[in-house]
Simulated assay, not measured.
Amino acid sequence: MGSSIPQAAMHNVFVYGSLLADDVVRVLLHRVPRSSPAVLRDFHRFSIKGRVYPAILPIEAKEVVGKVLLDITPFELEILDYFEDDEYERKTVDVYLMDTSEKMQVDTYVWCNKSDPNLYGEWDFEEWKRLHKEDFIKMSMGFMEELQLPESKPRVATYESFYQQKDDRTSMA
């Protein structure tokens, strides 16, 4: 089964937050690409006050464990760019694959606001899966539905309206 997209046009993307969950990736890309566990050195993964997803920033002697999504098409990268919105900047970084220790150049999404007072601590994927994954999948489905519309909203707006509706529902209960 050959792909019509030349291999050189494909991207490898290091993910470290909600995109570690195959279910979220499947909603956004309509498939789960091959992936490989990887470490990004000299970065730290923060929690963000008021958000359920993390941010990474360069910090010496720290590391972020995540995975590399392999062979992402230019169209899929556009979806990820839109999903990450303008809070993140796509950058090229070096990661180390955990199974081979091979160094690989990949794209990843780095938090734009380097002095953001809302960043704290360390984000925990296991806790996110337990507490937030189901809602995040629903929000991501809403994002993809919005994306089909001519006047689609950026992800932050979708995120805020989704969680606002959820808060309204819970306060009425």
Rank of each mutant, 00 (worst) to 15 (best):
R45L: 09
F46V: 04
S47Q: 12
I48Q: 00
K49A: 13
R51P: 00
R51V: 09
R51G: 02
Y53D: 00
P54C: 14
A55N: 15
P58V: 05
A61Y: 14
K67N: 01
V68P: 03
V68T: 03
V68C: 12
L70F: 14
D71V: 02
T73Q: 02
P74N: 01
F75S: 13
E78H: 10
E78P: 03
I79N: 01
I79P: 06
L80I: 15
Y82I: 12
F83I: 03
F83E: 00
D86F: 11
D86K: 10
K91Y: 13
K91V: 14
T92P: 04
V93G: 05
D94H: 12
V95K: 10
V95A: 06
Y96L: 06
Y96V: 14
M98D: 00
D99L: 04
T100N: 00
S101I: 09
E102H: 12
Q105T: 10
V106Q: 09
T108W: 07
Y109L: 08
V110I: 15
W111V: 05
C112R: 14
N113C: 08
N118S: 15
L119K: 10
G121C: 10
E122Q: 12
W128M: 09
R130T: 08
L131P: 04
M139R: 02
S140V: 03
F143Q: 00
F143W: 01
F143K: 03
F143L: 02
M144H: 04
M144E: 00
L147G: 08
P150F: 10
E151F: 14
P154D: 01
A157S: 14
F162N: 01
